[in-house]
């Protein structure tokens, strides 16, 4: 058996090359930039620049958007998935397909469409005015950014949770019912705990990208509202200060890694809570 695995190991070569060339080396370069100044001397100032009021404000705003997006995606995903599960299998699959369909369109195009929908004299406001209602002033506000990130990342929350929940054996749910659990209890004690692995990947796939995105804020925030991603992008592309850009990137990366570690731990807490069930 080890012979066969060895024989096929070289197949991962191209990916390894890709990975080293386009992930590992650039990362090392960024780290090197982050800890040096223009003269090449070691410094922590690029990293600590995250504490600068302008930067920390953008950072906290990013955090708010990412947390809000993650929580709202979770709240939207569970009812959706539970409905999908109830539907006849083929119809549930179709609904899922409808949900994923927009993902086949280009990311920028989707955002431009939202921009047109939400702008002050956009389609939605036109419609509201025609209906004699107050137009919305959401264009270039945090609300439109929030709508954008939720729209972009909701499928990444729904899919893993859907997979986890459809994997649950119907017999297990019937057993819970048989033992006296109503549908709320079945969700709390059986479906939700068993969906946690899916929730875990969902959070990873929604929180991290919504924390670090900058295109969405660019297009839907009108350039007035800046996420930390926008600031990093500006340091690289406009100010050409690669050292500062790298420093902020590394600070952000460390924060994301820590918060992910924390997420894994807090899920254990959720599991622990299920343990009030523990006997003895």
């Amino acid at each position: 058996m080890s012979n066969t695995t060895r024989g096929f190991k070289w197949l991962s070569g191209p990916y390894l090359l890709w990975c080293v060339g386009f992930t590992v080396i650039p990362l090392l370069v960024i780290v090197q930039y982050a800890f040096t100044d223009t003269t090449g001397a070691f410094t922590l100032s690029n990293i600590l620049a995250i504490l600068d009021p302008i930067h920390s404000k953008a950072f906290l705003f990013s955090l708010e958007i990412a947390l809000g997006c993650t929580v709202l995606c979770i709240l939207l995903a569970y009812p959706l998935v539970l409905v999908f599960r109830r539907l006849h299998l083929s119809r549930g699959k179709f609904m899922l397909f409808v949900l994923i369909l927009p993902m086949w369109m280009n990311f920028i195009l989707r955002l431009l469409a939202w921009q047109m929908l939400l702008s002050n004299n956009g389609i939605i406001n036109n419609l509201l005015i025609r209906l004699g209602l107050q137009p919305l002033a959401v264009a270039n506000t945090w609300i439109s950014i929030m709508i954008g990130v939720i729209y972009e990342y909701l499928p990444y929350m729904v899919l893993p949770i859907y997979n986890a929940i459809t994997d649950i054996d119907e017999g297990v749910i019937q057993a819970a019912q048989d033992l006296g659990a109503d549908s709320g209890t079945i969700f709390r004690k059986v479906i939700f705990p068993l969906s946690i692995p899916g929730l875990k990947s969902g959070i990873t796939m929604v929180f991290v990208p919504s924390m670090t995105s900058f295109v969405i804020a660019d297009l839907l925030g009108g350039g007035r509202l800046q996420l930390i991603g926008n600031i990093i992008e500006q340091e690289f592309n406009r100010s050409m200060d690669w050292h500062l850009g790298s420093g902020l990137s590394v600070a952000l990366m460390v924060f994301v890694l820590i918060s992910m570690a924390f997420t894994m731990k807090s899920e254990n807490v959720v599991e622990e809570e299920g343990r009030q069930w523990r006997v003895n």
Binding site: G180, V190, L194, R278
Partner: peptide, 26 residues
């Protein structure tokens, strides 16, 4: 109460928690 052919135990609970399920609900 039913005993199913596929056992249908709760995979996320241990043996004692499985057995206690109905009693906890009561």
């Amino acid at each position: 109460h039913t005993v199913f052919q596929k056992y249908s135990l709760f995979p996320h609970y241990d043996v004692a928690e499985n057995i206690a399920f109905g009693l906890k609900l009561k």
